[in-house]
Amino acid sequence: MAQTSSPFVVLSPQPEFFPRGGGLAPRLEALRGKTIAFLDNNKLQPHNRYFALLGDWLKARAGVKEVIYAQKPFFTRPARDEVLKPLMAQADAVITGLGE
């Protein structure tokens, strides 16, 4: 805790700590030979076509070895361990987030 001689001191409302290991994984140096996973939020079916096209592109143009597709149960429900753990075990990187 920093000390100060200022006449008026306030405390930061911002968080001082975060979950251990909860940050973003280190960026891959290259895609070639890697396994890449897509985690679809399951909002609209066209997402699947988009991810399928992107997966094909990654394999054909970037040398990605394998592409894995997974879905959240729905966009208002969080992904459970049975969805996340296989991705953690098999994928070198996971692409997720909204894609409306």
């Binding site: 805790m1 920093a2 001689s5 006449p7 008026f8 001191v9 306030v10 405390l11 930061s12 409302p13």
Partner: peptide
């Protein structure tokens, strides 16, 4: 128990509001 949050020195309450 001690408070652990980062302390921020400012000139006065108005400066604190503006900083936030």
């Amino acid at each position: 128990q001690p408070l652990m949050s980062t302390t921020i020195p400012v000139d006065d309450p108005i400066a604190a509001m503006e900083l936030f």
